[in-house]
């Protein structure tokens, strides 16, 4: 089951990109060592034969939870918008979304 190999700094950089984080060269080095040691600890479960067990995502088996379709108070729009870094005409305002073609 174990597909482990030592974590590389290239992988750490790739994961940081997926997680929308920027790392300094020094951080890449530190995190590579630290994350590698945490993943190495997980070797004790990576090698277990757990084929017969159902993955467990939650303590209790919960089915979909429904409520009656009745109108109830919701959060105040103005109060929510007051927390935003930038707002324009009752909308969250951000910078450019589409970049130049690569």
């Amino acid at each position: 089951m174990s597909t482990r190999h030592p974590l590389t700094s290239a992988e750490v950089l790739q994961v940081a990109g997926l997680a929308r984080l920027e790392l300094s060269e020094e951080e890449v080095e530190t995190f590579t060592a630290q994350l590698g040691s945490i993943l190495a600890h997980a070797d004790d479960i990576a090698s277990l034969d757990l084929g017969g067990l159902q993955p467990m995502a939650h303590p209790f088996d919960i089915e979909n939870v429904f409520r009656p379709d009745t109108v109830t108070p919701t959060l105040e729009r103005d109060e929510l918008l007051s927390q935003a870094p930038a707002v324009e005409r009752n909308r969250f305002k951000v910078g450019r979304i589409l970049g130049e073609a690569p």
Binding site: M1, S2, T3, R4, L7, E11, V12, V15, A16, L18, A19, L21, F31, L35, I38, L39, A42, I45, A46, L48, L50, L53, Q54, P55, M56, A57
Partner: peptide
Amino acid sequence: MLGTYALSAGYYDAYYGQAQKTRR
């Protein structure tokens, strides 16, 4: 980053999936 890695393609079964079975 650890979570992103454990959930990423290629490692999901070996890490996240295996951890969920261990939880069981």
